[in-house]
């Protein structure tokens, strides 16, 4: 296995423009002890929490509410008990502070909105950090419950920072990887730092240089079917040889279409893409044939818009014929 960096503040990776770690440390020095870490997966929320614990010589504990109980109603009291307990154990056996990291704040709030408030008055000297991955917590109905908590926002890491990190990790483990390989790993990670670690680990263990099987690196297939937009239907077959997921394919189409299609074409394209999307969401997951149809509709619609095929709405009544009579 790859040896990783110890969670320390100086090893924390963030975009050059923001200074999350500095902000949090200053806030702690000023006596703050309640935080919400908000940001997408793989931006270092967990890492920073652990690094802070190490910095303060405190013990670190993670609470995942799904691990506690099946019955969501009793979750809040379980968490409160848990934290009470750990606060107690600290005061009896340990010196120093304790950092408690609680995952999935959104779920907690939906079960018991007042839990954050209750925690605010409990276990005063330990640092409590809530983790949240969506923007749900910014809704106004939660505002009063989260009073007294400092919200720290994490942003998707850019590729430059990620590449520096990847190269550091490569050097640290004395691996031999070409620069191009590192670059493609970084690109396919899409801002998620733990994806990079996992992928480097795969290379470390298997010595495999095969790039196609890394996550989301289906760009190679996509490049080939870009020709679809230029009106070559034969290229559709190349697409069917791959096992691309319809959902990702949709997103890719939406991304690329504006580069190729004109205003009005674009409108009709998105009209048909959105209807394909509805079908895609409704069908059962195991229904392969239907999925294939949907994929085909998407591909062929791109094609037909490009060659400016006269648009016929087969579902609408043909009013023209009535008027002509």
């Amino acid at each position: 296995m790859l040896s990783l960096f110890k969670p320390e503040i100086k090893m924390f990776v963030e975009n050059y423009s923001n200074s999350i770690s500095g902000k949090v440390l200053t806030a702690i020095k000023n006596g703050k002890s309640r935080f919400i870490f908000n940001g997408p997966a793989g931006t270092g929320k967990n890492f920073l929490a652990e690094a802070i614990a190490n910095e303060l010589n405190a013990s670190f504990e993670v609470i995942n509410l799904y691990e506690l109980t099946d019955d969501t109603q009793s979750v809040s009291s379980m968490i409160l008990d848990n934290i009470k307990q750990s606060a107690m154990s600290k005061s009896l056996f340990q010196q120093g502070k304790k950092v408690i990291y609680i995952e999935d704040l959104e779920k907690l709030l939906s079960v018991d909105s007042s839990i954050a408030q209750k925690l605010n008055s409990m276990a005063g000297d330990s640092i409590i950090i809530f983790e949240s991955e969506t923007g749900e917590i910014f809704r106004s109905k939660y505002k009063r419950f989260l009073f007294g908590y400092e919200t720290v926002r994490f942003y998707k890491l850019n590729n430059r920072v990620l590449k520096t990190f990847a190269l550091k990790l490569v050097l640290y483990n004395k691996m031999k990887i070409s620069d191009g390989m590192v670059e493609s790993i970084v690109r396919s990670a899409k801002g998620n730092i733990s994806s990079i670690i996992t992928d480097l680990n795969t290379i470390y263990i298997t010595n495999s240089s095969h790039l196609d099987t890394f996550r989301n690196s289906d760009d190679s297939i996509f490049e080939k079917i870009t020709a679809v937009f230029s009106g070559k239907v034969e290229n559709v077959e190349i697409y069917f040889a791959s096992d691309m997921e319809a959902k990702n394919f949709e997103i890719w189409l939406a991304e690329k279409a504006p580069q190729v299609l004109k205003k009005e074409e674009l409108y009709h394209f998105f009209e048909s893409l959105s209807s394909a999307d509805i079908v895609l969401n409704k069908i059962k997951k195991q229904n392969w044939s239907l999925l294939k149809y949907v994929k085909n509709i998407m591909v062929y619609s791109c094609y037909s818009f490009k060659v400016s095929f006269p648009k016929v709405d087969f579902y609408a009544p043909k009013w023209d014929s009535y008027y002509n009579k």
Partner: peptide, 16 residues
């Protein structure tokens, strides 16, 4: 080829 789009859409609808 130009009509395939509509045929597939109809086929998908039927299947659905």
């Amino acid at each position: 080829d130009k009509v395939k789009n509509y045929v597939f859409e109809k086929l998908a609808e039927t299947d659905y």
